[in-house]
Design a protein around this nucleic acid. Structure first.
Lengths: 165, 165
DNA sequence: GGGTTCTCGTTAGCCGGCTATCGAATGTGA
DNA sequence: TCACATTCGATAGCCGGCTAACGAGAACCC
């Protein structure tokens, strides 16, 4: 029963395992590559900003960033203007593995869709997008149904959230 | 970049979160519902058997089963014939929540595919099956490529693995 | 200027994955 | 029969998610 659910959980676990195995060859765990991905674009973000862009809880980012700091991938510096903030900066080592990690991501995506036709890939993209849209907005099975226009209503922040993953 | 990868990780996290929220209303966490799903069909399995059917590592099942035992969902009894084995039995409470949990699974599947046409659902099933087949068999990017016929070659066990999730 | 409120990161603790290792029990073979 | 190999669950410890509670600092508003 619930075939789609089963297929989904199975495939996501397989993908995660494959990704972790691939990234670990370069000293980066699967959860850390997401943080790197964002910092490679804009260095010096705070844990809260990273959590927002990655759709993660702040403590998750804090813990991961601490591990990455002890692993020599990140540097934690206090913000000079606001003592509440901590800014995370890439080390040379983090910058050095960028190409390798991105290649692993490409390889994985290619590997997982190896037996899919371009059409099937397009269908998959479309279906996943719809699922995300469906699950991200509404807080639950609201009977009336919230208007889809309200999805992703910009918060009071000037900077757009820029959802990454 | 890696759009499919990003869509996949995002949707799987959303699904997992939605599933956990739904199941938790009935005192069952998302990882526990898998164990229940199997035991509802065949009660009294060992941790190792469960791990095999669910594609999990044995310690994962052991820890989860212990939590479920203290939560009053499972009973751990030593096997009378083989003192190495532990058999896990459902409690009345575990049997009682079966309908509710299964309904939550149905609801979630319906909710996530709410905006998909039957055709799109079929495409999704097809694509996920192909991805699983692709990632489950080969241990890596083997250049020669293992023959696909070898996938799921039956081990020496008489009982088929009966992969569930 | 000073109290209140808000915002941020940190900590503690839970769940669910994993590997490595260990100890106990069974099975096997000389 | 008895040593050795195998098998199984348990333990320790890691990573990556989460919520709840806390404390320090900024911002705000008298």
């Amino acid at each position: 029963m619930n075939e789609l659910l089963a297929l989904f959980t199975r495939s996501s676990k397989l993908m995660r395992a494959a990704a972790d195995e691939a990234m670990s060859q370069h000293g980066v765990r699967v959860g850390q590559n997401l943080i790197l991905e964002v910092l490679w674009e804009t260095d010096g973000l705070t844990p809260g900003e990273l959590a927002g862009r990655l759709h993660l809880a702040t403590p998750t980012v804090v813990k991961s960033a601490n591990r990455m700091a002890t692993a020599g991938l990140l540097l934690r510096k206090p913000d000079p203007a606001d003592a509440r903030l901590v800014r995370l900066y890439l080390t040379d080592r983090a910058r050095a593995v960028r190409q390798a990690i991105e290649r692993e991501r490409d390889d994985l995506e290619r590997r997982m869709t190896a037996t899919l036709t371009p059409e099937e890939r397009e269908h998959l993209r479309n279906a996943l997008s719809k699922i995300i849209e469906q699950l991200a907005g509404d807080p639950g099975p609201a009977p009336g149904g919230a208007s889809p226009a309200e999805t992703q209503a910009a918060p009071r922040s000037a900077q757009p959230p820029e959802a990454w993953v």
